[in-house]
Structure formats: structure tokens, C-alpha cells
Design a protein around this nucleic acid. Structure first.
Lengths: 197, 197
DNA sequence: TTCTACGGTCAACACGCGTAGAGTGAGATG
DNA sequence: CATCTCACTCTACGCGTGTTGACCGTAGAA
């Protein structure tokens, strides 16, 4: 009947706090954006004191940098053949946004990439340019780099329309429907333009 | 030699002030986003006092609403045939962003549409859905609404990549190059999917 | 000329923010 | 047990913000 003596060691407590802060920060940065998210709100959601956030991450900027991340796993695109680029890219996008682990961090990056300098640089250099390069490597014909760039731009547009702007019916479409509709368009970018008759 | 008596009537002065404020606000909202733009900075760029901004627009939110606008002129899409949708949509996008008048207002809306509630609603309801409807009206076959939605999403993705994220070579491509590369992809969305062999 | 209306400025308020430093109490260590 | 360590909290500072109301000088009306 006695309340159990706390069996939680110190470093375990610290790890849990950090995880709680990161979870709260990711959610808020993803929902409201960087500027509208306050350290106090993050702390409140994590159930701890605002000063503890500073102690863990040093600054709001550093917390933001630690909260936003786009998984670097785009093997599925790199190993795809030109014929399967389209499907692989769509799956790559969906996998980032429809599983719990990476979801909030990816939404947070996407949400802020137009207004936050760090997020913008990450989006351009670490997400889009990498995807562009992965696609580019498998293309042939004219305008290879531009076609790969437009390819990446369309994917980003799809992600924004679906997960942030939530424009219907793009937001509620199933993965299958998206593949059915989007793949032909992406294939037109992958396929070398017919130069001859 | 006497300094010329001010020939500027009062209402003309007022109109000039308002125009100067709007110009400054559009530039700053477009460059830095809503939260990072201060009334003081707008006033400084317009060469007037911060309080005058309030007197003219009442609040920062109202100034923002008056500064961001996406021209409603999408006649070129409405009057296009399914065959010319793609070209018309690209021209529609380029015309918004490459002429002085609408440019800043459109960039301001696009820049903030992921982080500002009003801008998000405007983007979804007044820009994307209208374009989607315009395209949708000319489509046939299955998934009409979704295809039109994805069409709009790709256009927005192109705009963001080109004018905000500035990913190369999309950002520096000529209009001609964009047409050459992008049109086939959009055509694949417009063309009814081949259901039979 | 005299009075009024109004475009424009000045100084300041109240608030919320990121951040810092001292303090506290429970777990680790001997 | 005594002592130290450290995760955590409390309180507060300084600053920049949106916003306000009193004030000023001049263009227009009488």
C-alpha cells in the first residue's frame, strides 16, 4: 500500500524528459510553425518547466533543428529503375508522412520551409536536391537536370497540398488512387522527350 | 528661389501614403514572412511613422490581408481546351510571378500559406480550388476531381520550388524550358487514363 | 483672416517572449 | 550515515512587439 519508491534512475529520467520535449516540440512546430510555437507551450505540453527546455537544447533554434528532420532514407528511389521511379517516389513521400515516427518531424520541416531560414536550406539542399540527384542519375535525353528538378517540385507540391494545405480530394485520396493518378504524370518527366517524329 | 508651396492636396497625400505602406508591406511579407515582418520595419521602408500604419489599416492582420492577393484572373485556364490546359496553366503561373504588379502580393501569399491561417485559407479556397475547378470542368474519364487536384498541386509545387525555395535549375529555367519539360507531365493528368487496352 | 478637419508624429503602455541564474530535493556515491 | 551530483523548478530580467492616445502643423472652409 505504500507508494512505490521511485524506481527511475537519473539518466533514464533525463532521457524521458528529452523525448517528451522533442515530441511536444515536433507536434507544435508541425501544427503551428516556428514563430507561433513558444518554449512555454512546448514545456507545458511536455509537462515540465520551460527552463528545462533551455537546459536540454540551449536555444529555441537548436530545439527546432533537433525537431525537424526528413529521413535520409531514399534508397527506394536510388535503387529504382527509370520505369519504377514514379512509384518509388510516391511511396517515399507517403512513407514519410503516414507513419508515426518520422511524420511529425517531416511535417514540421515542410511547414516551416518557406519562412524559416534553416528549414528552407534543409529543404532545398537535403531533401529536394538529393531527390533530384537520385532521379537525375537514372534519366537520359535532354533537360535531364530540369526534368529531375520538376519531378522533385511536383512531389513537394503533392506533399504540401495533401498534408498541409489539405486540399480535397488530394488530402483524402488513398495511396492507390494517388499512384493511379500521379504516376502517369511523373512517367512523362522520366521518359526522355521524343525529339524525333 | 522660395521653396515651392506644397501642391499636394490632402487626399492625394493620403493615397500616396497608403500606396507606400502597401508596397513596403508586400515586399517585406514576401521576403521575410508575416511573423518576421514588423510594423516598424514596414513604416521605415515606407518612410513614415509606425502609428500611421495602424491609422490606415487598423491592425497588422488587416494590413496582411490587404497585402496578399492572388489575381483572380484565370480566364486563360477557363477558356482553354483540354489540349491547351497545360500551357495555359504554366502561363498563368508565370504571369503572376514575373510581372511587377501582382508579383509581390502573390509571393507574399505563397510564402505565408503554410504558417498563416488566413493565407492558408486563401490559398486553398481562392487559388487552388478555383484552379482545380477550372481544370476539372474540362476533364473526362475517371478520377476527374483528383486529377484536377493533383494538377493544381503540381503547379503550386513548381511555384514554390522556383520562386521561394529557389531550387536550381528550376529557379533559373526559362519559360520556354519550363513549358518543354512540364507540359508533358500535365498533359498526362489531363488526358483520360487509358482504361482499355 | 480665423476656425476647423485631418494627415502625420511622438512617446509610451502592456504584454509575451527567449533566456539566465539561484535555489531545491531526491538519487548516486563513499 | 554523510556528502555530493544533477535533474529540475522558481523567479525575474531585458527586449521587441502591436497598439494607443495626446499632440502638431498645415490644407481647406467660412
Amino acid at each position: 500500500m505504500t507508494s512505490v519508491q521511485s524506481p527511475v534512475p537519473r539518466d533514464e529520467r533525463r532521457r524521458r524528459s528529452e523525448a517528451a520535449i522533442l515530441d511536444a516540440a515536433r507536434e507544435l512546430f508541425a501544427e503551428a510553425g516556428f514563430e507561433r510555437t513558444t518554449i512555454r507551450a512546448v514545456a507545458a505540453r511536455a509537462g515540465i518547466d520551460p527552463a528545462l527546455v533551455m537546459q536540454h537544447f540551449g536555444s529555441k533554434e537548436a530545439l527546432f533543428a533537433a525537431s525537424t528532420r526528413w529521413s535520409k532514407d531514399h534508397q527506394s528511389i536510388l535503387t529504382a529503375t527509370p520505369d519504377s521511379f514514379a512509384a518509388a517516389a510516391i511511396d517515399d513521400l507517403l512513407s514519410h508522412f503516414e507513419q508515426g515516427e518520422h511524420r511529425e518531424a517531416a511535417v514540421a520541416l515542410l511547414r516551416n520551409c518557406l519562412t524559416h531560414p534553416t528549414a528552407l536550406a534543409a529543404m532545398r539542399d537535403e531533401v529536394m536536391c538529393e531527390r533530384k540527384a537520385a532521379v537525375e542519375a537514372g534519366l537520359s535525353g535532354d533537360d535531364v537536370e530540369l526534368r529531375a528538378g520538376v519531378f522533385a517540385a511536383c512531389m513537394v507540391g503533392l506533399g504540401m497540398a495533401r498534408y498541409l494545405i489539405k486540399m480535397e480530394p488530394v488530402a483524402s485520396a488513398t495511396a492507390e488512387e494517388l499512384h493511379r493518378v500521379m504516376e502517369p504524370a511523373l512517367r512523362a518527366l522520366v521518359r526522355p522527350p521524343a525529339t524525333g517524329g
